[in-house]
Amino acid sequence: MAEINLKVDDVTVAYSNGHVALHDASFELNRPTICALVGVNGSGKSTLFKAIMGFVQPIKGRVTISGESVHQAHRKNWVAYVPQAEDVDWSFPVSVWDVVLMGRYGYMNFLRIPRQEDKRIARECLERVGMWEFRDRQIGELSGGQKKRVFLARALAQQGRFLLLDEPFTGVDVKTEEAIIELLMELREEGLIVFVSSHDLGSIPRFCDQCVIINRTVLATGPIETTFTERNLTIAFGGALRNVRFDHTDEPGSRNEYRVLTDDEGALVFDHEGKPALPVKRQIAESDHHD
C-alpha cells in the first residue's frame, strides 16, 4: 500500500453565521495509528471532522489525504466515518442490513444494486461486530451499543484506509466500549489511521498512541506519553474538569501522589510526574443508558 498520511494544514473553518469554529489548525498523521481528538464540548472536534469529510470548506488552509484532495480521497472510498449518535435519524425506515450496504455504495454500479461480493463483505462486517442476527431490525430498535456497532460495520464494509469516529463511546455500555477498542486496535494492526474524538479522558491512554488536543485551534499534538499530560489537558479543558488530588503521605515530594482529572465521562488518573497512570480500568461498571 502506498504511503498513508492525513495532513491538516493551517485550516480555518467558519460557519455561515460567521462563527469561526476552528482556526489555524495544523497537524499530521503519517503512520498506522489510533489518534485521539480531545477537547471540550464546542471545541470544534466535529467541525474538524466535517472539514476532513469535505462538509465544510476551510476558508483558509487545506486538508490532504495521502496527497490527494478530500474529494478525490472520498471518490476512492478511502475515508470511512462513524457519525455521532445525535447526528442520526433513528426513526428512519432502514434496517441494519440497509445501513451496512451503504458502506458499499462507492463500489456499486449506477443503480447501486449490490453485487454478490458487496453482500459477502457486508455480512462479514456484521459478523465481525456481532450484529448479524440483528440484520432485519429497524435501526431505532437497537440499544446504544448495538447502534454504534452497526455503524462500525458500515465503516468496515467501506474498506477504507482512514476511519473517523465522532464520540463513539457516548451512550455505550462498558462491554461494547471494550469491544470497540479491541476492534480499533486490530484495525491499526491492519494499517489504518484511526481518528477518534472523545471527551472520555479515562480510556484514551489505554488504546490511543497519539493525540490532538484542540480548543478552537490545535493546542498540542504528538504521542500520548508526551502530549496527553495533565498540563496540556488542564489548558484544554480549563474549568470544565474536576481535579481531585490524593496524597496519603503529607510529605513534600511524595511519590504516592495521584491526581484524578474528570469531566462527566471516565476519569483520568495521573501519577506524581503528571503522566497518565496506566492501565486505567474503570472500576465502577456503568449501565447502558440506552438499553
Partner: peptide, 9 residues
C-alpha cells in the same frame, strides 16, 4: 446520512 454519502464519493 449526507456524511456517508460524501464518504462514498
Amino acid at each position: 446520512d449526507p456524511h456517508q454519502a460524501r464518504a462514498v464519493g
